[in-house]
């Protein structure tokens, strides 16, 4: 061990505080958290639609300008959509956003941009965000299947 490496114990203050008398049972705490998150569903779904619209505009701008830096923005927005959709069990939308993250991450790494693949994803996400639960399982699966095929054509197999 070199002299500029230090290994030392630290006080676990979180353990002390959380073990103080009072508080909530884990069951109640988790249930309360689930209820509170669910109470934001309306605002969150509205935010998803808004983000999908912003992403559409961003992609159009990026394509027109041919600026690869736009993939950072598309990645961040798609990543945010993935997180919110996942929190509310909107699995198809989360999967579509995750797939777009894969693509944007690939293109921002220096690969030649495939705009049709981006457009298909952006449009699919916008449709899924707008339809919400109305998309239906079959409709959502059909959109996802299309995105999977596009993704498989563009990205190397993992």
């Amino acid at each position: 061990m070199t002299s500029n490496v230090r290994v030392f114990a630290v006080e676990n203050k979180l353990a002390q505080i959380t073990r103080e008398p009072g508080g909530r049972t884990i069951e109640n705490a988790v249930r309360a958290a689930e209820t509170r998150i669910e109470s934001t569903r309306g605002a969150s779904v509205a935010a998803l639609v808004e983000k999908a619209e912003q992403m559409t505009a961003l992609a159009a701008q990026g394509r027109a300008a041919g600026d690869p830096a736009v993939f950072d923005g598309i990645y961040d927005m798609s990543n945010a959509i993935f997180g919110i959709a996942g929190a509310f069990g909107l699995k198809a939308l989360a999967d579509a956003a995750f797939s777009l993250c894969d693509l944007a991450d690939w293109f921002r790494g220096g690969e030649a941009a495939n705009w049709p693949a981006i457009d298909v994803h952006v449009n699919g996400i916008r449709l899924l965000a707008t339809l919400g639960d109305k998309a239906g399982a079959a409709g959502a699966e059909s959109i996802l299947e299309g995105l999977r095929r596009v993704r498989a054509r563009v990205l190397p197999a993992t």
């Binding site: 959380t18 008398p21 884990i26 069951e27 945010a80």
Partner: peptide
Amino acid sequence: KSDRVNLSTAEVLLACGDLQG
């Protein structure tokens, strides 16, 4: 699940770039 956790006096920092998140 009946164990208790007291976070009422904990100082917690939550950070996320996306407001809705």
